[in-house]
Design a protein around this nucleic acid. Structure first.
Lengths: 186, 186
DNA sequence: GTCTATATTAAGATAGAC
DNA sequence: GTCTATCTTAATATAGAC
């Protein structure tokens, strides 16, 4: 077969889609090779530590995406309500109306490298912190703001599970609509 | 090695613990054999269809346990608040304060047999129905009751994920405490 | 930096003795 | 109804040509 190339970004996007769909153990190198067109040895050239390194890189790239597309926006300018409504739109796209799973869910299962779980734990904390901050801006005291921030993330994750289990994104879309009120935003 | 026997119930309990910890693809037959003491051929004698059949049987046994320990109780006698508080206790035990994962979460990932997802979907619907019924008894209209029932399940599932990701059961235990209010129970 | 070819290990699965 | 022994396939991983 002739040389084939695929950018690192395109590779990671395909890998993300596979991992969030089938989980770490459910994705084989063969699936990654078939979807990306790479050959096995080329994959190992890019990621010498194999699947462990790929899944960790995927999680880091998602964390980076959230950083610049969700968290920075939450901490940005404009009214809290305007910011959260834009965040809800982007979450809706990232999770494809509840069709695509959360990596905080699927990849936090006890499998794969410990380093992966560290990345996910840090991303979770950053998310809760950002929600806490925007709730605080709306006048809530620190304890209540953090409480509501955790509740908001809980409902996002929980509604994604229910969406997946019953096969309908309704619950997830309703959660997104409620986000401003959940965080008590002005 | 001498003959070893293990009851079907004990086998399924060990299998449940493995599957909810490592997921379907994360559990190998070898892990099941090591934990149960059975040999491979004996396992196939009990479950000719192998891992697919085992995980489906596990899910069915959990569904049966919920039926008689959670759903029947929700549909039983006593004030709604008294019933839900007993249910919360049992959920706390089943999920070991948030340490153990939900099979509606871990086993609903796109892996394993389709039959498994059917069992999980049915169990989810039964759960939502039971929550809806008890909320209706407290005076909520049908639409609002169902709405709150879904929210309650969403928060249980979501708080289990957050508990697992951050490594603390606090969020899950708080959800259980809030259950009566979430369902607006009298 | 990607390829073909090969090696190694583990997983799922079955045959047949007891 | 469990066991030992064996089989087959798939997964991870590497060597070396281009």
């Amino acid at each position: 077969m002739a040389h084939r190339v695929i950018s690192d970004d395109a590779f990671l996007e395909i890998a993300l889609d596979l991992f969030r769909t089938y989980g770490f153990e459910g994705v084989s190198l063969k699936m990654l090779l078939d979807k990306t067109g790479l050959e096995k040895a080329s994959l190992y050239y890019r990621y010498p530590a194999g699947k462990d390194q790929i899944v960790t890189t995927v999680a880091e790239s998602v964390a980076a995406w959230f950083e610049s597309n969700i968290f920075d926006l939450l901490n940005g300018t404009g009214t809290p309500r305007a910011r959260i409504s834009l965040v809800a739109e982007r979450l809706k796209e990232f999770y494809l109306n509840g069709v695509k799973a959360s990596i905080l869910d699927v990849l936090s299962i006890q499998s794969g490298p410990e380093e992966l779980r560290v990345v996910l734990r840090k991303m979770t904390q950053t998310w809760i912190d950002a929600f806490t901050k925007i709730a605080t801006e709306s006048g809530l005291d620190a304890v209540d703001a953090r409480f509501r921030a955790e509740e908001a993330l809980i409902r996002i994750e929980g509604s994604l599970i229910v969406a997946r289990t019953v096969g309908s994104g309704t619950a997830f879309e309703r959660t997104l609509k409620l986000l401003p009120d959940l965080l008590s935003l002005t």
